[in-house]
Design a protein around this nucleic acid. Structure first.
Lengths: 225, 225
DNA sequence: TGCAAATGAATGATGGTTCATTCAGTCGCT
DNA sequence: AGCGACTGAATGAACCATCATTCATTTGCA
């Protein structure tokens, strides 16, 4: 979180800045920033490499060289190759959910909330194709990963959607003859498929507008008559 | 198809039965049967092993021993480990689409067709959890595989759905302000998510009935007012 | 006996991980 | 300020466990 602002700087600038800082290690915060900087480089490189070649086909050496770092250095920041994948998921999910909740808190109508979720979902992944590839493809490459790790974050995400549908039903704007959890899954599944298709498609079209298409059908389907 | 009935037998029983068969390869037909027989055993074992441990974490030796066959034997029937995955996809997709088209030909109303597609989709995967795992999880573990191989079969599947929606629009039963391809993706995405959730869920609930839930929302969303 | 099918031990490549070594930068002392 | 000792981050070559694949040998049926 502290380094959030730094991570927006061009890598070279940040690097130099931190080098300078590390001459005064009195300041513990600066030291931590310098560390998370290299960690970020590896993190970033990993997303790129995994997206391009697939997790299992990527060598740790590939990630290291993409990060401009020696092979061994990777192990100063991550316990193992698998932990890198872990970290990619955790970081992204944390950010997605954090931002999502913050935004939703300011919206009243359940249907507007859902629309915003759809927009955010597609916007985020649409803005970072590599991350999207890792999320849609690589993170699903093992049942173990999916159940063991994804579950926590994913369940939370799905729950946000579910609760919103719940609200809508109580407010009378959504049909009451559908199960909120099931509807949430359908909603998520539709968005998910939009992303997957976008990734696999060669022609680069904007992803975010698809939110409208999904909403047209989904809202039509759950709206109270 | 032939082996569909055998797949319901406990593995050990099927295995033993096949062993007995291979002692009587009198005629050519029987010989061919014996061959495709062993191929089937490997195919089946591969689905089982890949589902349990994941494609990349499975050794060819695991598949071989699960099939009750020596390591080298696998290579008498498949060119490589990857070809096994290939074959799993091709076989299943061929069967899905073949059966699907056959069934749909006998249904008139577009909404009934869609309902049948949903039912078949969930029924099939719901009947073979291992195959479902391989389809939902393992086959997606590489961008290369997804774009290179899946595309052919998947595109065909999506096209069937799209054409049905097309029909419905022309017949006036579906709204005309939605794009059939997009609607098809949403429909597929919803079904896909049902399957994925079913796989990851610990409690074993029947998958097929979820078709109703999906239809309630999807049809409601695309129905002409 | 002859031949195709099956075997499974051996092979060789691959790639995750380690660790002895380097060296830039800091500290403490004069 | 200047100098030697020290620290620990970074390196990357080497290690070695892991498998996919091969092939010389065996098996068993006709």
């Amino acid at each position: 979180m502290n380094d959030g602002s730094f991570s927006r700087l061009p890598p070279a600038v940040g690097m130099h800045f931190f080098r300078l800082m590390s001459r005064i290690p009195k300041n513990a915060a600066a030291a931590r920033a310098a560390v998370s900087d290299k960690r970020n480089a590896i993190h970033r490189a990993a997303v790129e490499v995994f997206a391009a070649k697939g997790y299992f086909n990527s060598k740790v050496a590939d990630v290291a060289s993409a990060a401009g770092v020696a092979d061994g250095t990777v192990y100063l920041y991550f316990k193992s190759k698998e932990e890198i994948l872990h970290y990619i998921f955790d970081r992204a999910m944390e950010e997605f959910i954090g931002d999502g909740l913050r935004e939703l808190a300011e919206i009243e109508a359940p249907d507007d909330k859902l629309r915003r979720v759809a927009e955010l979902h597609l916007e985020r992944l649409g803005a970072d194709r590599d991350l999207a590839v890792v999320f849609q493809v690589e993170l699903r490459g093992s049942t173990k990963f999916m159940s063991e790790f994804s579950r926590a974050g994913f369940a939370k995400y799905l729950d946000i959607i579910k609760k919103t549908i719940d609200e809508g039903q109580k407010a009378g704007s959504f049909r009451k003859d559908i199960k909120p959890i099931v509807a949430a899954k359908i909603f998520y599944g539709a968005l998910d498929e939009m992303v997957t298709n976008w990734i696999l498609s060669n022609r680069a079209y904007p992803l975010r507008p698809m939110a409208n298409e999904v909403m047209k059908i989904f809202l039509g389907g759950i709206a109270a008559k």
